[in-house]
């Protein structure tokens, strides 16, 4: 039986304090948050196993810095959802706004709708699965982890990419600087199949194309020394 916290009666700080304390005890309890009304920074900084469901849409920075907890938004999320996430699972039933999963180190961000611009910007090990489309400049300077998109990607995908792997099933409007299409090898198909299953995505790994870094931008080329 989930503990219900109603934001029509409690303010944001009370709710977050309750969730953060419960996470620290690693109780793995279930919490239900009602009437979130698009509040900022909901369920952020959870440091331990906990199951949180937010009934409605959230504002900026929901589930930021998440560690171990499972946070589900039964609605849409504002900018910066799961920013700098470390581990755990954050699920968005609707759409996510810009820079979803930015700088994330680990865990799974599962977006059932669309994500807008700059999804996975500077990601550092997180897995992001977007069941719909993603906006422009996604995975900009992404360093590590996997970004999987079942729909289409916007302009300048993977600009200035490091070692993150990008998988897109639909169309890519354009690739950013130093981002190229790469062959899909057996280890990629295996990893993708596992990730799609974890995200509950109805898609087969063979339908995707893989994109990655050409590695020309972040290695210094001695022939270019005169240009500096």
């Amino acid at each position: 039986m989930a503990v219900t916290l109603d934001m029509a009666k409690l303010d944001l700080r009370e709710v977050n304090t309750a969730l953060q304390s419960a996470a620290k005890t690693h109780s793995n309890d279930a919490y239900l948050i009602e009437n979130p009304r698009g509040s900022h920074a909901m369920a952020c900084g959870l440091d331990g196993a906990l199951d949180v469901t937010i009934k409605g849409s959230t504002g900026y920075y929901c589930a930021g810095m998440n560690k171990e907890a499972r946070v589900t938004v039964d609605g849409s999320a504002g900018p910066g959802v799961a920013e700098n996430m470390m581990s755990g699972i954050v699920t968005i039933a609707g759409d996510a706004s810009q820079y979803a999963g930015a700088t994330g180190h680990g865990g799974l961000l599962n977006i059932k709708g669309n994500a807008s611009s700059r999804c996975g910007i500077s990601m550092k090990g997180i897995d992001i699965v977007v069941h719909g489309n993603i906006g422009h400049m996604s995975a900009f300077m992404a360093q590590k982890g996997n970004l999987v998109v079942l729909g289409d990607a916007g302009d300048a995908l993977g600009d200035s990419l490091y070692e993150a792997r990008l998988f897109v099933r639909g169309k890519v409007k354009s690739l950013g600087a130093d981002c190229i299409e790469k062959e899909m090898r057996p280890e990629h198909l295996k990893m993708l199949a596992e990730l799609l299953e974890r995200a509950g995505a109805d898609a087969s790994p063979e339908e995707f194309r893989r994109y990655g870094s050409a590695r020309k931008l972040y290695h210094f080329n001695i022939d270019h020394a005169d240009e500096y």
Binding site: G38, S39, S57, G59, G78
Partner: peptide, 11 residues
């Protein structure tokens, strides 16, 4: 039809 900078304004 409603427009806002943030969803909060629609609540």
């Amino acid at each position: 039809v409603a427009f806002a900078s943030e969803y909060r304004a629609f609540a």
